[in-house]
Design a protein around this nucleic acid. Structure first.
Lengths: 225, 225
DNA sequence: GTCTATAACCGGATAGAC
DNA sequence: GTCTATCCGGTTATAGAC
C-alpha cells in the first residue's frame, strides 16, 4: 500500500533539490545532514511509520547501518526534524511580529510570513505538523513547548489590538487557534504545482485574518482594500 | 515509540462508548462493526501504519485471524472508515447549506454544522482527514471525489453571496480552501476535555467566516453582533 | 565512517481445527 | 465464524571487516 502512495506524491528533491530544505544547512557532518534530508522527504511522502530506515539511508546514498552512527533511532531523526523545523517557523513568526507598524501591520506580516514558510517548506512543515504523534513522550513535550510559543506570539498581537480598539475580537484564544489552523493547514494541501505562489497565499490569508479581527467602526483601518 | 504515544491520547471509547461513532450503526454483522470501531480508535490514536491488526482485533474482542473474514486487508478497513466518514460529513454540510435564509444564514449554518461534525466525531474525522495517504490508489481517488463535493458546496454559497453583493470575496477558490482548512483542522486539535463544546466552536467559526466574506458596505447584514 | 552480514523481533496474512 | 498456530517477509539495531 505504501508503494502505491509513493507514486502519487511528487518527489520534492527532484523538483527542487537545493531548496528542499535549507533549514538543515548547518547540520554537520555531511552524512548526518544527508540523512536528515532523506528522512524529511521520506516522512513527508509516506509518514513516519511507513518509512523504513533502508529508505532513509538509501536516499542519503548509504547502507541502513550507517544511519545508526549519526542517530540512535529513527525517532531521533524525527525529533531533530521537528525541533529544527519548529524553531525555524517560530523565529520567522517572531521576526515578523516584532517589526514596526500598528497591530494590523504586525498581524498581517505575521500571518503572511508564517503561511509562506508553511508553503515554501511544505515538506518539512508536513512532517513537523503532522507526524508529532510518533515522537517519544519527552521529545513530544519539548516540541509542544515550541508550538506554544507560536500561539503566544499570535495571541499577543490579537490581545494588543483588541485592547487598543484596533481589533474587535470576541474570543481571543479561540480566534488565535483558528488563525493557527489556517496557517498550519497550508502545509497539508499546498503543492508547488498549484496556481498560487507561497507569497500570494500568504497575502490572501493575511487579508482574511485581518477581516476576522477587524473592528466594526468606520475608524477601523484594518479593513482590507 | 507507538506505545508511549498511546498513553498520551485519550481512549475515546472509554470516554463515550456509545457516541464514539454512531456513524457506523448500520454496519452488519455485529463483528464487522466492532472491528470498524476498533480500527477507528486505533488509527486515530496511532495512525494507520503504526496500528497492528492484532490491536484492532483485540479491541473488537477477537483474534487477529477473525478480522480477515470481514475485511480482505487492513487497508480495506481504512477505506470503509474514510468512505462512511466522508459521506457523513458531506451530507451534514449539504443539509445545512440547503435550508432557507440568505447566503449568510446558509454559510453560517454550513460552517457551524461542518465544524460541529469534525469536533463531535473527531476520532473518525482525524482518520478520515489525516490518514488518506495510506489508501490504495483507486480507493484514494474515490475519496477525493467525495472531498470535492464538500468544497463545491461551500464554494457555491460564496459564489452566490458574492454575486448578489451580500458577500465580498476577492478570491473565491482561495477563500473556499481557507474555510475548509479552518473546519477540518478542528479534528486535529479538538479534545472533549477542552473548554468549548463542539457547538460553541462551530458558532465561533461561523462568526469568523462571516467576517471573512462580509461586504464592507453598511448594508452588509452578515456582520456579526 | 561506511560497508556486509546477521541477530532478534514483529508485522500482515493464511491454514486448518472446532 | 472464531480460534490457535504458523508462515514469511520486513524492520530495527548490532557486530565486525575494511
Amino acid at each position: 500500500m505504501a508503494a502505491e502512495t509513493g507514486s502519487r506524491v511528487a518527489k520534492t528533491a527532484e523538483e527542487d533539490p537545493a531548496v528542499a530544505d535549507e533549514s538543515f544547512e548547518g547540520v554537520t557532518p555531511d552524512a548526518a545532514r544527508r540523512l536528515l534530508l532523506g528522512a524529511v522527504e521520506a516522512f513527508a511522502e509516506r509518514g513516519f511509520h511507513a518509512t523504513t530506515t533502508r529508505d532513509i539511508a538509501g536516499r542519503a546514498g548509504m547502507s541502513p547501518a550507517a544511519l545508526y552512527i549519526h542517530y540512535k533511532t529513527k525517532e531521533e531523526l524525527l525529533f531533530q526534524i521537528s525541533k529544527v523545523g519548529h524553531e525555524r517557523s517560530v523565529s520567522v513568526l517572531a521576526e515578523a511580529a516584532e517589526g514596526g507598524g500598528d497591530d494590523a501591520d504586525r498581524l498581517a506580516r505575521a500571518v503572511r510570513s508564517f503561511v509562506r514558510w508553511h508553503a515554501e517548506h511544505h515538506t518539512t512543515a508536513r512532517v513537523v505538523q503532522y507526524e508529532l504523534a510518533a515522537l517519544g513522550a519527552e521529545h513530544y513535550e519539548e516540541i509542544v513547548g515550541l508550538r506554544r510559543r507560536s500561539e503566544e506570539i499570535l495571541r499577543g498581537i490579537l490581545e494588543s489590538g483588541d485592547a487598543s480598539g484596533e481589533f474587535e475580537v470576541a474570543d481571543i484564544r479561540g480566534t488565535t487557534l483558528a488563525v493557527m489552523s489556517l496557517c498550519i493547514d497550508v502545509a497539508r494541501w499546498y503543492s508547488p504545482a498549484g496556481r498560487r505562489t507561497p507569497d500570494q497565499i500568504g497575502g490572501l490569508y493575511a487579508d482574511l485574518v485581518l477581516r476576522m479581527v477587524a473592528s466594526a467602526g468606520p475608524s477601523g483601518p484594518a479593513r482590507a482594500e
